[in-house]
Each structure stands twice: as structure tokens, then as C-alpha cells.
């Protein structure tokens, strides 16, 4: 049976989303099953109309320009591409917290990016975190 990773993704900032994308790509490369639970601020980033144009970062905001330039120079994928590629490589599921979705006007899964799988509740997140071999909160 594959090892399991669970990520509680609270952040909706490009720096942390990129870190989450890199970590889940690494897990997918090792054939881990990954469940990502998108919580409060994270759901803002996963709204269809926001995902592409996201440009806020949580850490070192005064170095934002350098951060984006460096990502480009080093040919680092966008956070969205990390998520999409990881889903192609392994069993990766993206769950949007129901409350978080509603905070940003998202009621149905169709309101979110096409690589999001379903809308879930907090109980499912806690169960997944309990059963996972690795759990992280970003």
C-alpha cells in the first residue's frame, strides 16, 4: 500500500502555494497518495477567477519582485502547474473546505480550478491527517 501525505493548505499566497506544490510533487514522485485540504485563505487562490492572476506573497513582501524574477530565471513551474503535474503522476486529490469556499463566493466545485476534486468538511481533513504517514499545515 502506498504511503500517505496530508496537507492542510491554509495559505492563499504564491510563495506558500509554490512550496506546497513542490512538496506534493516530491511526494507524488515517490508514488505517495496525497490529500490536500484547502482551508480558509487557500480557497481564495483556488477560485477559478483568482488562480491565474494571483501575485501576493506572505513572506518578505518587500522582495516580491525578486522572488518572481528568480522563479522565472530558474524555470520553476507555477504553483498551479505543480499541482496539475503531481495529479498526473500519482493519486493526488484536492479538496476544498466547504466553509472556505463560501467565504469567497464558491458554492460548487465548478467555481474552483479544474484540478480541484471536491468540496469537503473538516471531519474528512482530520481523519485524513490522522491516517497519513506525513501531515503538514501550510
Amino acid at each position: 500500500m502506498n504511503k500517505k501525505m496530508c496537507i492542510g493548505l491554509f495559505s492563499g499566497s504564491v510563495d506558500k502555494l509554490t512550496a506546497a506544490g513542490i512538496i506534493l510533487s516530491g511526494a507524488a514522485a515517490q508514488d505517495m497518495d496525497v490529500d490536500v485540504f484547502v482551508l480558509l485563505m487557500g480557497a481564495h487562490a483556488f477560485k477559478k477567477e483568482n488562480a491565474e492572476k494571483l501575485d501576493n506573497i506572505a513572506e518578505l513582501p518587500h522582495l516580491k519582485e525578486q522572488f518572481f524574477e528568480s522563479l522565472k530565471r530558474l524555470k520553476v513551474s507555477t504553483w498551479m502547474n505543480f499541482f496539475k503535474e503531481a495529479k498526473e503522476l500519482a493519486n493526488v486529490k484536492i479538496h476544498i473546505c466547504g466553509l472556505a469556499g463560501k467565504l469567497w463566493g464558491g458554492e460548487k466545485i465548478e467555481d474552483f480550478v479544474d484540478f480541484a476534486d471536491d468540496i469537503c468538511g473538516i471531519g474528512e481533513y482530520i481523519s485524513a491527517a490522522e491516517e497519513a504517514d506525513i501531515h503538514m499545515f501550510i
Binding site: I22, S25, G26, A28, A29, L74, K75, V76, E85, L89
Partner: peptide, 14 residues
């Protein structure tokens, strides 16, 4: 070559 981590690992996996 020319891609940063985790690019080469993902390329290998594919």
C-alpha cells in the same frame, strides 16, 4: 538541464 528542483526528479519519474 536548466530546470530547478523538483524538475529533474519529476522528469525522471515520467
Amino acid at each position: 538541464r536548466g530546470t530547478a528542483c523538483p524538475g529533474p526528479l519529476l522528469a525522471a519519474k515520467r
